[in-house]
């Protein structure tokens, strides 16, 4: 089937199998080798991408669902100011994810920060999406709160 979508700012028209997962489309058809996922759909959480601003597990999104959507992977996200906020929060808290889950966890943090979630139990529930246990949950909560504060200050300065 013909799928038209915007991936990392580029408008693409792709001929794809309708049930092909987004994770494979990004790797095989677009050449974005961003994921370190190897769970074959078992929910390791290492294949997160942003589809229309919402974090999704790309191994669970079929080709026919991305038609007309805007997809952002870590490759383009790392060039944004929003990424800088999270990177600063990593430095401030002195904790960062391991190289395996770094990209996915950063995108997950971004989706939580963008929604402005600050309640501890709600953050904990969201963080359970990624299986990798490289980070302490309290550090993750501190990173999210720190990044929200950094972003707020940046926006105040700009306005």
């Amino acid at each position: 089937m013909r799928v038209e979508c915007i991936v990392d700012g580029k408008t693409l028209s792709l001929s794809l199998n309708s049930n092909k997962p987004l994770s494979l489309i990004l790797a095989d058809d677009i050449g974005i080798d961003t994921f370190s996922s190897c769970c074959s759909g078992n929910g390791c959480g290492n294949c997160i991408a942003l589809v229309d601003g919402n974090a999704v597990l790309s191994c669970m999104v079929p080709a026919f669902e991305i038609n007309g959507k805007t997809i952002i992977t870590f490759e383009s996200f790392k060039k944004t100011r929003n990424y800088q906020d999270i990177a600063k929060a990593y430095d401030a808290v002195k904790a960062r994810p391991c190289p395996i889950c770094y990209k996915s966890r950063t995108l997950l943090f971004e989706s939580i920060i963008a929604r402005g979630v600050t309640k501890e139990d709600e953050i904990m529930r969201e963080l359970g999406t990624i299986e990798c246990a490289c980070m302490d949950a309290l550090d993750e909560i501190r990173i999210i709160r720190e990044a929200i504060e950094i972003r707020r200050r940046r926006r105040v300065r700009r306005s």
């Binding site: 199998n17 309708s18 494979l24 759909g41 669970m60």
Partner: peptide, 20 residues
């Protein structure tokens, strides 16, 4: 699609022979 996409043989699979 969470169940269908989670199958070990989810893609490529025999699902391709059926319509969705």
């Amino acid at each position: 699609g969470t169940d269908l996409m989670r199958k070990k043989d989810g893609y490529p699979s025999k699902l391709g022979e059926e319509e969705i």
